[in-house]
Design a binder for these strands. Sequence first.
DNA 1: GGTAGGTGAATGAATGCTCATTCATAAAAG
DNA 2: CTTTTATGAATGAGCATTCATTCACCTACC
Lengths: 201, 201
Amino acid sequence: MARAAKQAKNSVADKREAILRAGVKVFAAKGFFNSKVADVAKEAGVADGTVYLYFKGKDDILHSIFDRAMAEFIADGRRELERSDDPADQLAKIADVHLSRLGADRSLAVVFQIELRGSTKFMEAFSAAAFAEYLEIIRKTIESGQKSGVFRSDVKPIIAAKMFYGALDEMVTNWILSKKPYPLEPLAGEVVKVFLGGLKA
Amino acid sequence: MARAAKQAKNSVADKREAILRAGVKVFAAKGFFNSKVADVAKEAGVADGTVYLYFKGKDDILHSIFDRAMAEFIADGRRELERSDDPADQLAKIADVHLSRLGADRSLAVVFQIELRGSTKFMEAFSAAAFAEYLEIIRKTIESGQKSGVFRSDVKPIIAAKMFYGALDEMVTNWILSKKPYPLEPLAGEVVKVFLGGLKA
DNA sequence: GGTAGGTGAATGAATGCTCATTCATAAAAG
DNA sequence: CTTTTATGAATGAGCATTCATTCACCTACC
């Protein structure tokens, strides 16, 4: 590829990227339905019409934000998972990736926790499959722990997986809504401790 | 009060009630932002303008749905809580009320799980205080368990409370999004079992 | 007991504003 | 000069909210 062409292609990618980033920021700040396409365009430093050269419409921006982030998220999780055989360890890794990724980008976290759920339509159409995949990773990890005997077997793995996910999810939601800023990632250890050991003395 | 006057007052309460119920149904089905006030009015069997005799506007309907349901919810929880001294038992009661109440009204559950969170504005303005109160009830229960020695003390009660809430919350969200209908309430026992006993063998 | 006037709840068509989207035109690239 | 990319003003559909009017029922007076 010639240098010039590559340059051009980069600038195209950059503009798309800028709009996506602006979308995250604006949607997080005002909510998807309260955000105007013009707001996103302005934040991205492009004209209103330009948005439509890169996205089908407002919905498509949200959709794209989700697709990209979720793909990274799952890839990250899988990579970490392969670096250990111990299911307890693997759950700790999942918790860590979950909280550190979302903890690193508050706006993205807001879009994920609040905006993506704000409509059953989006939940059903976009997030359902990817979310199911994520839950499945947790479930399998728990199941393998049960097979190897490190986890108790009188618990349905799918229930435990939902609980684990729910606990992590709640940490993130609380972190977002909290007035006082604090680091999210360190909570991973505590969550895993309680989840594995239980609350009983 | 004369019979006629009483009759009239009842019909006023009924109309407000009808609009609230219609709101739950319509918002659950189409999402708050995709619902028209006219849809709610039609579902309630009143004219569009009538809605404004009972509510300040569309937002106020959602707000009122939340207020009423949350008040009932918390009152229910408190009542159950007083019927036992054992913290483990009390957590079981909370889980039971939580899952049975939402499990009894799918539309209300959808509004609570999906629509109320659909906007940071609503989260901050309306639900924050009531939600904090609910979380506080759980936290205190856990704390009293720690003081009496039935719960381990090397866990921050507020973290454990969020985990417990998050786990229950996730059960509800999954139940809503599931294609296959199943009873929600029975999951309470399983959740409490894992939360108290832990996943480790 | 019947009639006239009064009251306010209820109506729903009309209003006016808010955006998502388009497109004629301009700028930049090649 | 041609093609590609970008612009932002103009469009018009959608929808929350308003308000002039209707109507059911109540009260007071004959």
